[in-house]
Design a protein around this nucleic acid. Structure first.
Lengths: 203, 203, 203, 203
DNA sequence: AATGAATGAGACTTCATTCAT
DNA sequence: AATGAATGAAGTCTCATTCAT
């Protein structure tokens, strides 16, 4: 099992470390995430961890990014039923907040992380925000405006405002530990409907 | 070395430690906030710090709360000119975001802190939200609805939605390091106007 | 034995650490001098070492300086018999080289150490070289020139040249492991006599 | 990946490693000279380094020796102008000290290295000191004694004494960081002239 | 001949906390 | 009320070396 390992094995080892790291975060939180702990959890020497990650920072970054990808993957799964675009927005935001809350440790670390490597994925203010979810939201808003008779002057801005509200909501629900499904559904719904209401009337 | 200190002296000592702690946070960040550092900065022994604070956690809590109070004090200062309520809301939010950004280290620590002692001050979801600013915002919205012809059905909810958007905005501006005055003014303005527009039309 | 220790105790502890450190150097060399080893040798926690020394560098510096002081103390002991100044120079240099060789580990570390804190003590080129031994050598050369009929134009320079030769000799005897008493006596004698011979004739 | 490498290739690889090692020493010092670093610098695997050198020690030895050879090559280059032997000695020593100082990292490591493999090259006390420079110095002194009317009883000893002085000088100039050309020229000159003066008078 | 993943010891350092005085 | 020496665990990181391939 020593040298010139097949790329598969490499990936496997990296995966092993990542899984170990995530296990630690999930059970004890990010404060407990240390190189030492990861090595122990993965049943590997400390040196090995440094073989795969240059330093703690890059390990944390990998964990955080991996958490973000799980989150987004979850959110992007297709809905069960076909619904009107405005309904879809609500459904998706509910799922977004639920997923974020269920992985709150990652969510906060990712969404408040100022490291350029992370912000690259999470930015809301950069122009071509395709990957980050803002793009999808714009598309949905556009659809809604056609199908449901909204008139939206600046979709980009409106999407961002709506997103910021949900974002603020998510963080406060986590912080205030109001994480029941009911809380989530109620607030997402009223936020979205308030927003759409405005759009409908603004023609 | 002293005997039977007057309560004043106690308060003075506590203050000295708090000031020292804040100085450290401001110059080097929360990561550098250690008991040792505080003792040194305040020119006091380590043991003394433990006289006033049970452990590190309670010291951090005190620092964080004190930061929050400075922040709110700043925001609550009266405006220079008398303006319409809707204008005042915008002005105050601009100031809020600016102050939060100028003290971002505290702002994040406070506003994302789930400790009950902190949440007690920062909560947005609890009913009688008088102290936290939501109360003031409700009052302003109420005034606006009278003076400027809005119709608002549920002022409490509307105030919270608006606040959540500004809250989300603040955190993302910090995270993405978009902290110029222009960014702040533009975003706060468009967010508030979008919101008011909706209210005006919703009659 | 805890707090507000008497200064004596403090000095004792520092001494304990210094002695431990020197024991390590003497038995295993400077490469083996680690904070860990010192703590163990002194039967003290690692943290305690850091209580007395800011970092490894300052510990090493203390060890090195202490070694230098022992060396100089040894060299400066009065001679057993009163002899002519030129003889005294030879006797003292023989003792210097012998002591240096018997403590070769320190000698090299000190005399090749470029740290300002060390060079301050060992410098040969600075003007007022009173403490470093050059001063004493100048005095002896001066005496010799009166009593034994030398004429020396620039005593400072001549003292330094003689010293440099002995210094070079010491280092090479150590490096080439020619450390018998015979080697030392022979070389120091021939070097000094060569030097004096010149001086005698140069009138 | 290759089969049956020609001896040339072997030498080439060794050279590549040696060059890499020297590059590291020159840019970052001997402390930074690690097997890892050499492998990286030479764009070669760690294992390969161990093919060519048994362990770190032998690599360091090779580096050190190679440095010494560069140094001596430089010193042995012919002088630009033909000059009297005593002048040539001064010129060559000035060059020696300058070169040593310009490569101080190697100079110290070599000239204070007690490993037999190194001392074999640098020894000053062994009898047939042909290669090490002492031989050349003896020849020059001999020439001077014929051409310039010195009488020297024991050329071998006198050469060594002069050499030891220059050696001591070089090490102290490095240690005390007095490395301007002026310092070098002044000291070498006064040392040599003092020595020659003695020789002239000793007839 | 060459690779490079893995090891595991050991380096330095920081820190919250205790407790005898 | 105040001190500060002492603890000891935990943290990050580097390194020479081995060995299966």
């Amino acid at each position: 099992m020593r040298k010139k390992m097949k790329p598969d094995t490499i990936k496997q080892n990296e995966m092993k470390l990542l899984i170990a790291a995530k296990a630690i975060v999930e059970s004890t939180g990010f404060e407990a995430l240390s190189i030492r702990a990861v090595a122990q959890q993965a049943d590997v020497s400390i040196g090995t961890v440094y073989h795969y990650y240059d330093n703690k920072e890059s390990l944390v970054e990998a964990v955080v990014l991996s958490g973000y990808q799980s989150l987004m993957w979850e959110v992007k799964q297709p809905l069960v039923n076909e619904v009107a675009p405005s309904e879809e927005i609500i459904e998706r935001f509910i799922r977004y907040v639920k997923t974020a809350i269920s992985q709150k440790k990652y969510y906060q670390k990712v969404m408040l992380n100022p490291s350029p490597a992370i912000v690259k994925h999470t930015s809301i203010f950069k122009e071509n925000a395709i990957g980050s979810g803002i793009g999808s939201l714009e598309v949905l808003l556009q659809k809604a405006s056609y199908q449901e008779g909204f008139t939206i002057q600046d979709i980009g801005t409106q999407a961002r405002i709506l997103w910021l509200t949900i974002y603020g909501l998510t963080l406060r629900l986590i912080t205030e530990k109001k994480t029941t499904d009911e809380d989530i559904v109620d607030w997402v719904t009223v936020i979205c409907e308030t927003h759409f209401y405005k759009l409908k009337r603004s023609e």
